[in-house]
Design a protein around this nucleic acid. Structure first.
Length: 577
DNA sequence: GCCGTTTTCGGCCCGACTGTTTTCAGTCG
């Protein structure tokens, strides 16, 4: 088994143990181990070979043994035995709001059912409300939960939740008494998808804030309301939580609500080690007394001898250690972006002319644009024949001439990587482009081995500057094709080929976790909007968020370089430097 | 199941809210 498969197996063990009513700390140990394995830099097979698996933080003797078996044999009797004891359908039930391991287990044991359909039927037949610890209300919450689960798997893309969050924020900010307010949660951490939206407000008078929030026309249903906290489901799908606290507690609440959960646990453990208790109200000496005063989040981190940690990094993937050493990177930001590469035009499947795309870039303050229409194999997307390419280049020359050097359009191409790893034009023709993005658009069903060697072969072509959307995933819609992404990213770094962070909200591919590991090994990236219209250029913002999550600095992003430097780099690659 | 500048055993982050209770377990973030 490879790293991801081992992580999935450990995570499954944790969940199955939870459903068996095991010690919650034991189940958490499996969840932690899964995370550690998934995000580790080292080669897992090598660690197994050298019997060093237990050198990983959070992995001891017992877990090391199980991991070793998974890697070597591809199976683990312990997991197989667990599966026979816990029906797999129950794993699905856990994703229904309000159902945790205890209740899932109770329903399963009392009614002898284990599939989503059976659970739905049992609710319709009123068979849950009479169980111990259940009632009419808990039964009534399950059916809508099943509907939501079936409709959208309960997660939403960045643009959806960001827009909704901004609207909610705009709603509560003007309420009298509100001192400050922010979006928190995974939206603030810029994860690729979110389950819900978190809003935190500082005010001495929560009631009118809660009213404004709950009465919003965005709200479908109010699912909970206490004195300081209100939970709703929005008409657009996601749920949203509001928390109102006093101004003194506000930074602590913002930090707590921003998460991630794992980051919070690590922070609270660190506080504990320093004789302090960290919660959403303050940082309190264990022997009692008032909270240490902290005016903002930076002060909280400072009180624990840590540099300020940007929200995107709060995933408990090494950020505390780096903050403690003072070695956190200065993350790339929207204002660092100098231009955009990988955009389409009406020459292939875009909806705007090259001139209009260039104008849209200038309006956004960019100084260059890489036009990368599809190559001939992408016939479904109007891919360009060599003759059309030559025509397009004439148009770009004309436009550049008219622009008089105030803005530059690069002659790029998004060239298909063919099934055998060759590119879609002959080498001598490739030399005509300023910039080449190579992407897979077909035959997603190759074996991992074949897909990997196909892409590796393309990376060997000296004309390839950037690898496009390296896994082909469509978030919430299509899984990545099977590929040894680590090997691909490593090879790209070695050959000085950049791997794009495709900024389209449905892609966000390269994944930020893999980006972080690649960057540590010398990888360069480009934050590419893959825009098919002027509005699509704005997707760069989402890509920047993902790059930040990957610990990426401006120095590591091709399109955060000024034109001249980018051109020199491209030229040097052509010359084999 | 992991871990140790208090510990090799006894801890493991912490609080709001709900629903079902009659003082609290379960869920959630």
């Amino acid at each position: 088994m490879n790293r991801n498969e081992v992580a999935a197996a450990l995570s499954e063990i944790g969940t199955l143990l939870e459903l068996q009513g095991e010690n919650p700390f034991k189940t958490r140990a499996y969840g932690n181990a899964a995370r550690v394995i998934k995000s580790m830099d080292q080669d897992l097979a090598e660690l197994v070979e050298n019997r060093q698996v237990d050198s990983l933080k959070g992995i001891g003797k017992a877990l090391a043994e199980k991991i070793t078996l998974l890697v070597r044999d591809g199976r683990l009797p312990y997991l197989e035995e667990l599966r026979t004891r816990v029906p797999t359908g129950l794993l699905e039930w856990l994703r229904i709001p309000g159902l945790g391991p205890k209740k899932v287990r109770a329903i399963h044991l009392a009614l002898g059912i284990s599939t989503l359909g059976e659970l739905e039927y049992a609710c319709q037949e009123n068979r849950l409300r009479d169980l111990d610890g259940f009632g009419q209300a808990s039964q009534d919450k399950i059916l809508p939960g099943i509907d939501r689960l079936r409709k959208n798997a309960g997660r939403f893309l960045q643009p959806v939740v960001q827009a909704e969050a901004e609207r909610l924020l705009a709603l509560v900010r003007p309420v009298p008494g509100v001192i400050r307010a922010t979006v928190a949660g995974s939206v603030r951490r810029k994860t690729e998808t979110s389950k819900d939206i978190d809003i935190v407000v500082a005010s001495a008078d929560p009631e009118p804030v809660m009213d404004a929030f709950a009465d919003s026309d965005q709200v479908e249903e109010i699912t909970g309301r206490g004195p300081t906290k209100c939970s709703v489901v929005l008409k657009s799908g996601p749920s949203a939580d509001l928390r109102v606290v006093g101004d003194t507690a506000y930074p602590f609440t913002v930090m707590y609500f921003t998460g991630s959960k794992e980051h919070n646990i690590a922070m609270r453990s660190r506080a504990r080690a320093a004789g302090l208790k960290l919660n959403e109200y303050g940082l309190i000496p264990e022997d009692g007394g008032a909270s240490l005063p902290c005016a903002d989040e930076a002060a909280i981190y400072g009180s624990l001898d840590l540099a300020y940690i940007e929200p995107e990094l709060r995933e408990d993937l090494g950020e505390l250690a780096a903050a403690s050493r003072g070695s956190l990177p200065e993350l790339v930001s929207d204002s660092d972006i100098c231009g955009v590469l990988h955009c389409h035009s009406t020459w292939s499947d875009g909806s705007a002319s090259i001139a209009d795309m260039a104008q849209a870039c200038r309006e956004r303050g960019y100084s260059y644009l890489g036009i990368c229409d599809h190559s001939q194999a992408a016939s479904y997307a109007g891919g360009l024949s060599p003759e059309q390419v030559l025509e397009q280049h004439k148009e770009i020359d004309r436009l550049n001439h008219d622009l008089g050097g105030s803005f530059t359009i690069l002659k790029g191409i998004e060239v298909d990587i063919l099934t055998d790893g060759a590119l879609d034009y002959p080498d001598e023709f490739m030399a005509r482009f300023d910039l080449v993005v190579a992407s897979v658009h077909s035959r997603f069903n190759l074996s991992e081995e074949d897909q990997t060697s196909r892409i590796l072969k393309a990376l060997d072509n000296r004309y390839v500057d950037i690898l496009g959307h390296p896994t082909g995933r469509l978030l919430l819609a299509r899984d990545p094709y099977p590929v040894d992404l680590r090997a691909v990213v490593r090879a790209a770094a070695e050959r000085h080929v950049a791997v794009e962070v495709n900024a389209h909200p449905s892609r966000l591919d390269l994944d930020w976790r893999e980006l972080a590991i690649g960057l540590r090994n010398g990888l360069l990236t480009a934050i590419n909007p893959d825009a098919h219209s002027p509005a699509g250029i704005d997707h760069v913002h989402h890509g920047v968020g993902i790059a930040r999550k990957g610990w990426c600095t401006a120095e590591q992003v091709l399109n955060a370089w000024p034109l001249r430097r980018l051109q020199d780099w491209l030229k040097a690659r052509r010359n084999g430097a």
